[in-house]
C-alpha cells in the first residue's frame, strides 16, 4: 500500500459511493429475504421434528461434541471476519485479506465436519433424506445452510483472487464489506440451527 493512500479513504469506504450505498442497502434487504427463506425451513422442521417414521430419532442420532466443535469454528470465523472489516475501515488491505483467508479456512473446516457428519448418518444409521419427513426437513434445513457456507467460501476466494492486485479503493471496499455481512448472517442462522435442531433434539 502506498503511504500517501493511507488517509485518502473516507471513514466508511463501503458506503462512500452511490454504487456502494446501493449495494449496502440492497444487501441488507436481501438478508431480510434470506431470513424468511430460513424461517420457512425452520418452521417446517419444527412441525416435522417428531415424524421419524419409526426410524432413528434426533436424540439417538446427534452427538453434541461434534456440533460444539462446528459451532466454535463458525463463531471464530465470524470474529475473524470482524477483524477483516476493521482492517478494511482502517485501509489495511493486506491485513484484511489475511483475516478473510483465515475466515474462509475456518468455513472450509466447518464444511468438512458437516460432510463427515452427513455421511456418518447415512452409512452408520441409514438416516437419509428419504427415511422420514423429519429426515427430509433435517437435510433440507441444515443442507441449505451448508450450501450457503459453500457459496460464501467460493465468493471470498473469487473476490480475493480478482482484487488482490487492485488493492483497497472505493470500488473494492463495498465488495469485501458485503461478504463480511453475509458471513455474519450465516453464523446467525447456525446459532438457530444448533439451538433448534441439535440442542432441542437432545432435549426431546
Amino acid at each position: 500500500m502506498k503511504p500517501e493512500a493511507m488517509n485518502k479513504l473516507p471513514a466508511n469506504p463501503e458506503r462512500a459511493t452511490l454504487d456502494g450505498k446501493n449495494k449496502f442497502l440492497g444487501f441488507w434487504f436481501f438478508l431480510g429475504g434470506e431470513t424468511v427463506l430460513f424461517a420457512s425451513l425452520f418452521g417446517v422442521y419444527l412441525g416435522l421434528r417428531n415424524a421419524t417414521n419409526g426410524g432413528v430419532t434426533a436424540n439417538e442420532l446427534f452427538e453434541l461434541p461434534l456440533v460444539f466443535i462446528a459451532t466454535m469454528l463458525l463463531l471464530t470465523s465470524s470474529l475473524t471476519s470482524v477483524f477483516a472489516t476493521m482492517a478494511l475501515k482502517t485501509n489495511q488491505f493486506k491485513r484484511m485479506i489475511g483475516w478473510f483467508v483465515v475466515t474462509g479456512l475456518l468455513g472450509l473446516a466447518f464444511l468438512g465436519l458437516e460432510i463427515y457428519e452427513f455421511t456418518h448418518y447415512v452409512h452408520e444409521y441409514e438416516h437419509t433424506i428419504r427415511s422420514s419427513a423429519w429426515g427430509s426437513a433435517f437435510y433440507t434445513l441444515v443442507g441449505t445452510h451448508g450450501a450457503h457456507v459453500f457459496v460464501g467460501i467460493s465468493w471470498i476466494t473469487l473476490l480475493i483472487i480478482r482484487n488482490l492486485k487492485r488493492g483497497m479503493d472505493l470500488y473494492t471496499a463495498p465488495k469485501f464489506y458485503l461478504f463480511a455481512l453475509y458471513w455474519h448472517f450465516i453464523d446467525v442462522v447456525w446459532i438457530f440451527i444448533f439451538t433448534v435442531v441439535y440442542l432441542m433434539g437432545k432435549v426431546g
Partner: peptide, 11 residues
C-alpha cells in the same frame, strides 16, 4: 415475516 412463518408452520 420469519417469526410469523415459523409460528404458522410449527402449528
Amino acid at each position: 415475516v420469519a417469526a410469523t412463518a415459523v409460528i404458522a408452520l410449527m402449528g
